[in-house]
Design a protein around this nucleic acid. Structure first.
Length: 838
RNA sequence: GCCUCCGUAGCCCAAUCGGUAGAGGCAAGCGACUUAAAAUCGCUGUGUUAUGGGUUCGAGUCCCAUCGGAGGCACCA
C-alpha cells in the first residue's frame, strides 16, 4: 500500500518547473505523485452544499497487478468522475476489491498458504498501481468483500432474504464443474462448460441453496423500460433474452387410471393437433406415471441418459429418443386418447416438465413422432405443404382446421378462443413462463462468505443469530486442506463445524458451503456509501443521499450475471424496506476490450501487453489518453492499431502552450475579452461542444476537439497575437481542464505553470459566452433539385428572402435551372436554398 | 431457428433536426529548420457512405430487402 511508495516525493504545495525545460512525463509524474491522495482531492464532501453524483467502476478482482483492461475501464470512469467534479458536483467515486474467489484458493493450495495472504498482497500491488495511474477515487471508501467487516453484512443480508422466503434449499440436478469441484449457477455455464475454467459441466443431484430470483422475473423485465436509453441496448437485449418470457396456457390433461398432468404450451390454438404427450424423462413425474409393465424400459432409458453429456443433450439435431410410459391422457378439448411418453427433449425444470406434442406444428415433436411412428395431424393451414406429408412442421399463423370450435379462426383469435374454451371447462388457463431459473448460490469452496446457517438434528435449519455475526472463516486451514474434494473444505475444520444449536443448545453443525462471490458484489455499491460503518450495514440517510449509482462503468461480460443479480438484490431490499430505490445503476457504460492483433490478450496466445511496460515507456497520461482517444468507449481497442507515441507527442504539444504562456508577460486573471476574438470563438465553441459530448459519452471526440483547440492556440502563439495574449491564456487553461479528464499529471503541471493553485480538478469550468458562438459570416449552399450547384458567403443574420435572392443571382444556379420553371423554393435558414424545377 | 447492434478515406474514427460527406489522429508523400539526422513546424483528402430498392425538394442519417461482421438466447414447448 502506501509503504510501497517511499520512492516518491510527496508534494502538498503549488509547484511548477522553474525554468524552461523539455516535456518529460517522468519528471511530471514525479512532481505530482501522491499529491491527490495526500490532499484528499477526490474525497466526497457529503456536505449538502452541492448537487451529488455517484460514479462507480466495477470493482476489480485482485488477480495480480492491473492489466490493460483495468487501464481502459478506469480511464473511462475517470473521465466521467473528473468531469462532474469540474462541473461543481460533489462526487462519490469509491474503490474497493471483490476479493473472495477461487484463484486465491488455488494459489494457496499451490504454495501451502492461506488465501488471504495472496489476496491482500495482490490488493496492495493493485492499489499502488492505481495510485500511479492517478484515478480520481476517494481512498477512504476502500472495502474488501473478504473482510469480516464486510461479509458480516453479506451474511446479515442472506438471513434477511431467508426470513422473507427468498432463500431456500432444494434438491435437484445441478451443474457441477468436475475441475473446480463445485456447483455452478446457470449463469456460470457457457455452452455447457464452466465459465471460469472451460471444463465440461456435468449434472449432479444435490441439495443446494437458492435465491428466488424467479419471483422477480416480471419486475426485472418490466423495469428495463426505464433503463432504455441509459443502458446499452445490447445489455438490455441480453437480459431480456435471459429472462426469456413467454406467454401461453397451462392445460390439464386427465390420465386414464392415473394422476392428471398439466402441460405448458405457447400454442393452445393447436390443441386439436396434440397426438401424444411427453414428460421429462428425469422428472419424478415420469416415475409416477409409468405403468408396471413399462417401468423397466423407463429405468433402462434413464440409465442410458446418464452417459449423455450435457453438450450432446443440448444439440437439437441429435436423434430423438424416448420410452412409452404405458398410459393415455385425454385431450381436454377433443376428448381424444393420446399416449404418454418420456423423453430427454423435454426439460424437467421448465414449465411443468411435461408437454402436449403437436408434431404438425413443432419440429421437435415432429422429429419425435417420426422416430416413434406416432400420428401427425395438421390443424393450422398456413398455405404451406401439409406437414403430415413433408415431415416439416409449419409454425406460422394460419387458419385452424380439424379443430372443432376453433375451425376458421386464426392466430391470436384462435389462441384466445382455445383458452376461453379451456377456462370454461376448468381445464386450463392463460399463463406466463420464464426461462430464468433460481440462482444457485452455495459453493463447495473455502474462500467465500460462509453461509450463516446451523443444521440441527432436532430444530432443522437454524439461522445464526444476528449478534453472532460474522461467522468467520477459520484461519488455520491452508495448502492441501483447501484442495477441492467434492465437498466443502470447511467440513475438515471440526472445531469450526461443531457448534451448539442456538435454539435448543444441542449438538449441531455449521453449514459448510460458502456463497457464490456474485452475492458479495450484488450489494457492494450500497455499502460504498458508508464503507466504514461498524454499527449497521449502512446509514439509511447516507445511502439515500448517494444511491443509486448515477454512472456505472464496466465490461459487458457482466451483462447478465452481476447486473441481473444486483438488480434483483435492489428490488428485494426495496421490498424489505431497506432501500428507497428499485434500480441500482441509473446509467451504464460498457467499455470495450483491449485487444492485440485482433485477438483478446492471453497467456496461451502470448500476445499480452504489459501495462507496467507501457506506462514506463510512454507515461501514465499518454496511455490513458490513448485508451480514451482510440475509439468510442464501448468499442474494442486493438493495441496494434494505436500509437501511444502520438499521444505523448500531443501531450508535449499541449504542455508547451502552458510553458509559452508562463514565460510570456501573461498574468493569471487577465481579462480575456481584450484578446484574440478568433481564438476565443474557438475556445468557447470547444467548451460548448465538449459539454454535450461528455454527456453523450463521446470521449474520443472530446479529445479531438481538445486537439483542435491546441492547434488553434499554437497558431495564435506563433503567427497571431502571441503567447502573452489573454485569449491564449484562456484557451490554454481550457486545454488544461479538458486534459485533466484523461491526463491528470500533465494537466496539473500546466495548471501550475499558468500560475494557479492546484488542483485543476477543483478549478471552475469555463462559462460559455453565447455571443462567441454566433458566427457573423456563414457559408450558404445553393441547390437545384437537391444537387449542390454553388456556395457563397453571407452575413449570419441574412433573411430568407435575401438568401433566396442571392442564390437566384448565382450563375451556376441559373445555368443549372436553364429554361426550366421554378416550381418551389426551399430555404433553410442560414444554411441553404434549394430550387425545385421542372 | 429467434432477438439485438454495426458497416463512412489504406487504418482508427467524426458528421445535433434529413440540409456543403471530413473534425481529430495514424500511415503515406512533399516542404521549412539542420552539415546531417532526430525533435519541431507547415502543406497534401475524389470516397459506389456494404449492395439494391423506397419515402423526400434533398438520405451516411428514415423505411424495406440482400450481403458481410459482432453479440445474446436456443430441444425453453
Amino acid at each position: 500500500m502506501t509503504e510501497c511508495r517511499q520512492d516518491i516525493v510527496t508534494n502538498t504545495s503549488k509547484q511548477a518547473p522553474t525554468e524552461r525545460e523539455e516535456y518529460s512525463f517522468a519528471a511530471i509524474e514525479k512532481r505530482w505523485a501522491g499529491y491527490w491522495e495526500n490532499n484528499k482531492t477526490f474525497k466526497a464532501a457529503d456536505d449538502d452544499t452541492r448537487p451529488r453524483r455517484y460514479v462507480l467502476d466495477m470493482f476489480p478482482y485482485p488477480s495480480g497487478d492491473l492489466h490493460m483492461g483495468h487501464a481502459e475501464a478506469f480511464a473511462m470512469g475517470d473521465v466521467v468522475s473528473r468531469y462532474w467534479m469540474l462541473r461543481g458536483y460533489d462526487v462519490l467515486h469509491p474503490i474497493g476489491w471483490d476479493s473472495f474467489g477461487l484463484p486465491a484458493e488455488n494459489a494457496a493450495i499451490a504454495r501451502d498458504a492461506h488465501p488471504a495472504e495472496w489476496t491482500y498482497n495482490n490488493i496492495a500491488t493493485q492499489r499502488s498501481s492505481f495510485e500511479r495511474y492517478a484515478i480520481s477515487v476517494d481512498w477512504d471508501t476502500v472495502l474488501h468483500t473478504s473482510d469480516p467487516e464486510y461479509y458480516k453484512w453479506t451474511q446479515w443480508l442472506f438471513l434477511k432474504f431467508y426470513e422473507r422466503g427468498l432463500t431456500y434449499r432444494k434438491k435437484s440436478q445441478v451443474n457441477w464443474c468436475p475441475k473446480d469441484q463445485t456447483v455452478l449457477a446457470n449463469e456460470q455455464v457457457v455452452d455447457g462448460a464452466c465459465e471460469r475454467c472451460g471444463t465440461e459441466v456435468t449434472k449432479k443431484a444435490l441439495e443446494q441453496w437458492y435465491f428466488k430470483i424467479t419471483d422477480y422475473a416480471e419486475r426485472l423485465l418490466e423495469d428495463m423500460d426505464a433503463l432504455e436509453g441509459h443502458w446499452p441496448e445490447r445489455v438490455l437485449n441480453m437480459q431480456r433474452n435471459w429472462i426469456g418470457k413467454s406467454t401461453g396456457a397451462t392445460v390439464t390433461f386427465a390420465i386414464e387410471d392415473g394422476p392428471e398432468i398439466e402441460v405448458y404450451t405457447t400454442r393452445p390454438d393447436t390443441l386439436y393437433g396434440a397426438t401424444f404427450m411427453v414428460v421429462a424423462a428425469d422428472a419424478d413425474l415420469a416415475e409416477q406415471l409409468v405403468t408396471d409393465d413399462q417401468a423397466k424400459d423407463l429405468a433402462a432409458y434413464r440409465e442410458e441418459l446418464k452417459h449423455v453429456s450435457d453438450i450432446d443433450r443440448q444439440s437439437a439435431d441429435r436423434p430423438k429418443t424416448g420410452v412409452y410410459l404405458g398410459r393415455y391422457g385425454i385431450n381436454p378439448l377433443s376428448g381424444e386418447r393420446v399416449p404418454v411418453w418420456a423423453s430427454d427433449y423435454v426439460l424437467a425444470d421448465y414449465g411443468t416438465g411435461a408437454i402436449m406434442a403437436v408434431p404438425a406444428h413443432d419440429q421437435r415433436d415432429m422429429d419425435f413422432a417420426r422416430a416413434m411412428d406416432l400420428p401427425v395431424r395438421m390443424v393450422v393451414d398456413t398455405g404451406e405443404d401439409n406437414p403430415e406429408d413433408t415431415g416439416i412442421a409449419t409454425t406460422d399463423p394460419g387458419t385452424n382446421v380439424n379443430s372443432g370450435n376453433l375451425n376458421g379462426l386464426s392466430g391470436q383469435e384462435a389462441i384466445d378462443k382455445a383458452i376461453d374454451l379451456l377456462a370454461a371447462k376448468g381445464t386450463g388457463e392463460k399463463s406466463v413462463n420464464y426461462r430464468l431459473r433460481d440462482w444457485l448460490l452455495s459453493r463447495q469452496r473455502f474462500w467465500g462468505t460462509p453461509i450463516p446457517i446451523i443444521h440441527c438434528a432436532d430444530c432443522g435449519l437454524v439461522p445464526v443469530p444476528a449478534d453472532q455475526l460474522p461467522v468467520q472463516l477459520p484461519t488455520d486451514l491452508h495448502g492441501q486442506q483447501l484442495a477441492p474434494k467434492g465437498k466443502s473444505p470447511l467440513e475438515a475444520a471440526e472445531d469450526w463445524v461443531n457448534v451448539e444449536c442456538p435454539t435448543c443448545g444441542g449438538a449441531a453443525k455449521r453449514d459448510t458451503d460458502t456463497m457464490d462471490t456474485f452475492v458479495d458484489s450484488s450489494w457492494y455499491y450500497m455499502r460504498f456509501t458508508d464503507s466504514n460503518n461498524d454499527e449497521e450495514i449502512w446509514d439509511r440517510d447516507r445511502l439515500d443521499r448517494w444511491a443509486p449509482v448515477d454512472q456505472y462503468v464496466g465490461g459487458v461480460e457482466h451483462a447478465i450475471l452481476h447486473l441481473l443479480y444486483s438488480r434483483f438484490f435492489t428490488k428485494a431490499l426495496y421490498d424489505m424496506g431497506l432501500v428507497s430505490f428499485t434500480e441500482p445503476f441509473a446509467r451504464l457504460l460498457n467499455q470495450g476490450q483491449v485487444l492485440n492483433g485482433g485477438k483478446a490478450m492471453s497467456k496461451s496466445l502470448g500476445n499480452g501487453v504489459d501495462l507496467g511496460v507501457q506506462l514506463d515507456a510512454f507515461g501514465v497520461d499518454a496511455i490513458r489518453l490513448t485508451m480514451v482517444f482510440a475509439s468510442p468507449p464501448e468499442d474494442d481497442i486493438d493495441w496494434a492499431d494505436v500509437a501511444p507515441a502520438a499521444s505523448l507527442k500531443f501531450l508535449a504539444r499541449a504542455w508547451r502552450l502552458a510553458q509559452d504562456v508562463q514565460y510570456s508577460d501573461s498574468a493569471p486573471g487577465a481579462d480575456p475579452s481584450t484578446g484574440s476574438l478568433n481564438l476565443r470563438q474557438t475556445t468557447h465553441k470547444v467548451v460548448h461542444e465538449a459539454e454535450s459530448l461528455l454527456d453523450d459519452q463521446k470521449f474520443n471526440v472530446v479529445i479531438a476537439r481538445t486537439m483542435e483547440l491546441v492547434n488553434a492556440t499554437r497558431k495564435e502563439i506563433d503567427n497571431g497575437a502571441g503567447a502573452a495574449d489573454p485569449a491564449v491564456r484562456e484557451a490554454t487553461e481550457v486545454v488544461a481542464q479538458l486534459l485533466s479528464l484523461v491526463a491528470p499529471y500533465t494537466a496539473e503541471d500546466m495548471w501550475a505553470m499558468l500560475g494557479h493553485e492546484p488542483s485543476v480538478s477543483r478549478s471552475s469550468w469555463l462559462e460559455v459566452d453565447e455571443s462567441l458562438l454566433v458566427e457573423d459570416k456563414i457559408t450558404v449552399i445553393a441547390q437545384v433539385q437537391g444537387k449542390l450547384r454553388d456556395r457563397f458567403e453571407a452575413p449570419a443574420d441574412i433573411s430568407d428572402d435575401e438568401l433566396e435572392a442571392l442564390a437566384r443571382d448565382s450563375q451556376n444556379v441559373q445555368r443549372a435551372i436553364g429554361d426550366q420553371q421554378i416550381r418551389k423554393v426551399i430555404v433553410v435558414k442560414g444554411k441553404l436554398v434549394n430550387f425545385v424545377v421542372g
